[in-house]
Nucleic acid binder design. Structure first.
Lengths: 243, 243
DNA sequence: TCGGTTGTTGTATTATATACAATATTTATT
DNA sequence: AATAAATATTGTATATAATACAACAACCGA
């Protein structure tokens, strides 16, 4: 708020959006949910991909807008959601993107401040059918091309936010794993998040001494070698231990 | 951005502001810079205090707006500045605050999304003279009453952000200390930030084995007991050690 | 049964964190 | 000059966590 509000402000061109960086893990690498505009639109091809997001409604809280975007995308209502940064650079939207926006919304746009959210999703979950003219893809982090707006930057910042969040809350990364997972999956996930190799024995030792990761009497199925034991994350034990 | 932009949006009432939580440390406790509206304004007393902040200008980046607010407050141009959260709840502004805003800005306001910034400042630095009708105060965290808008919440979140930032960057907290400081000041600062007592000997041991904290041949002056040695933080050594 | 592939496990070493109190230095007081 | 008052300074023993490192086990398929 202001020490000195200017009375000649022209603020009618401020728009506010939310964008969601939804991350998944396929057992090998991290992937991000991207929307692709398919088909032609007025003779111009909009091939770029972008993050799911939307302008916020007039009466809508920021968090609620992000929830809505994710609900439309996944059909789920209880998704973990973490606001991690706001982006408002004047040049964050290229001329081409701006043209597309004005063409789509039939509104004059000058600046769009976006509030970026991070969400971790089990990659096996089925997704809702996207709105007509759009495709949804789980895109591996190494396969992301140049995205619309400043979305490449948002994704880079989101990965950092995952790391910080996981440091604070050791339960966070389990949102990326299936309910039953192998030690290899968990280790690979840590290697991808922190970007460095983990020693097999030391990692196993560290994990098995956590009581909230419980070994099951089951093993993975259908592999052409010795099957690995399955583990699960026990949220109740975790919560109890946190006190 | 959007999968499905609505074409009937009424977005003209979105306003965007920045608010700055400026923290200082007096050797004993953390303090926050607050503005107080003094005097009467149309017969109504606005006694509440609030964080420094302002609506952003039409062509202004978010970070630049925060820099501007801090420059007006301190006269300094190179202040550390960390964006930590955006606030956009519909009910974050009380009816009374809204009336004050509309009275002050002569604009109809419906929703104000604010981007909150955190800044650490040496408390000894002289402040600029505030705009007429305002006073600036360093207020101890325990002495903060009910602030305007949701500013109490911002401050609470800001303290948490300091902790997280200090975990990532051990040089961060030195922004709060004078150039030459005693071990007691440093230890007290850590106790205030992390909210728990630090063992005197262990703390001393841990700190002295950091090469970027260098002991000086000086001692504090004018105390009625054994004078403590002074230390300083060496940013160059710190940067070198980070690689 | 044998080769190929991946899963599983322990020990020794080093570094870091924790618990804990006596002595030193300076100023103020008598 | 002696002493009281206040705070500064320092070490050792123990526990816990991090790291480095490789042999054997289990299963599949040929």
């Amino acid at each position: 708020m202001s020490t000195s509000f200017r009375q000649d402000l022209q603020l009618a061109v401020n728009h506010i959006s939310v964008d969601c960086v939804v991350l998944g893990f396929d057992g090998e690498q991290l992937r991000v949910l991207l929307l692709k505009r398919v088909g032609e639109s007025g003779g111009q091809e909009f091939g770029d991909m972008k993050l799911p997001g939307d302008l916020i409604y007039t009466d809508e809280n920021l968090d609620d807008a992000a929830k809505r975007v994710l609900h439309e995308l996944t059909g789920m209502s209880n998704i973990n959601l973490l606001q991690f940064k706001a982006y408002g650079s004047k040049d964050r939207i290229t001329k081409k993107d701006m043209e597309w926006l004005e063409q789509t919304t039939h509104q004059h746009m000058e600046r769009i401040v976006t509030i970026a959210y991070l969400s971790l999703l089990r990659i096996s979950r089925p997704l809702a059918t996207p709105p007509a003219g759009n495709e949804v893809h789980w895109v591996g982090l190494d396969e992301i091309g140049t995205l619309a707006f400043d979305h490449n930057i948002l994704i880079r910042d989101a990965i950092e936010a995952v790391r910080h969040r996981a440091d604070i809350d050791p339960s966070y990364l389990f949102n990326l794993l299936p309910q039953k997972f192998t030690m290899l999956q968990l280790r690979t996930l840590y290697e991808r998040i922190y970007g460095k190799a983990q020693d097999v024995r030391n990692f196993h030792k560290k994990v098995t001494q956590l009581d909230y990761i419980v070994a099951l009497d089951e093993r993975e199925q259908g592999v052409a070698h010795r099957a690995a034991r399955l583990y699960r994350f026990d949220r109740k034990i975790f919560r109890r231990a946190r006190r």
